[in-house]
């Protein structure tokens, strides 16, 4: 069973990408489960993902990178001991720092035969400048980028070439080892590359 994270600030397109990945991987014959964690007390995204015929496990009560990391581990273990799909896609809250989630999984991974797939972090290109204009948000978005194996520059259909170039340069400074992918889920751009990465790539556990 392989675990993959799709992280990134609120509204960056995580849920839309998770649905596209879930559908694409299922079409390729993979058994997929999706773990959705939301910051609000009553989940919305999990219900939306379910509408697309995908298997969803909601985690509420806080953020899995800090407040309810134990709940996340118990959920992963239950999936492993139960349906044990080929791939589990974890969609944390938009506030989550993916490195903390990876650490929680690593700490308990020896109990299970699981591998780590790539951590994909989405950057909302049309809103990037606005978000990075606030020091508090800049620290959070930067911390998310640092932990990424793949950075998906999202909503590229709504960005100019100049903005994209600026974003690529900024991302390379923060995380030079991450692969950068241009993503427009509405147009299908970048989705196939991410399905391939999720299927084939393993990162050190």
């Amino acid at each position: 069973m392989k675990l993959v994270q799709v992280a990134g600030w609120l509204g960056s397109g995580k849920t839309t990408l998770v649905i596209a990945l879930g559908k694409g991987l299922s079409k390729n014959g993979k058994k997929v489960a999706i773990v959705v964690n939301e910051i609000g007390a009553i989940p919305v995204d999990g219900r939306v993902v379910q509408e697309y015929g995908l298997t969803v496990h909601d985690i509420d009560g806080g953020c899995i990178c800090c407040q309810v990391s134990g709940n996340m581990f118990r959920t992963i273990k239950a999936i492993y001991e139960g349906p044990r799909p080929d791939i589990v896609i974890i969609e944390p809250t938009g506030l989550a720092v993916p490195g903390s989630i990876r650490e929680t999984i690593r700490a308990g991974a020896h109990e299970m035969d699981i591998s780590m797939g790539p951590t994909i972090v989405l950057i909302d290109i049309p809103r990037a400048e606005k978000l990075l204009g606030y020091e508090g948000l800049k620290r959070l978005v930067t911390a998310q980028m640092v932990d990424a194996d793949i950075i998906a520059l999202s909503k590229v259909d709504m960005a100019t070439e100049g903005k994209l170039l600026e974003a690529r340069e900024a991302v390379c400074v923060v995380n030079p080892r991450a692969e950068i992918i241009h993503l427009s889920t509405s147009r299908g751009e970048g989705v196939a590359a991410l399905i391939q990465a999720v299927t084939e790539r393993r990162v050190e556990a």
Partner: peptide, 17 residues
Amino acid sequence: IIKTNPLHEDIKAYAVA
């Protein structure tokens, strides 16, 4: 003890059903 990431300060949520 519920630890919250300090990076989450100033982000507030409300949900209703």
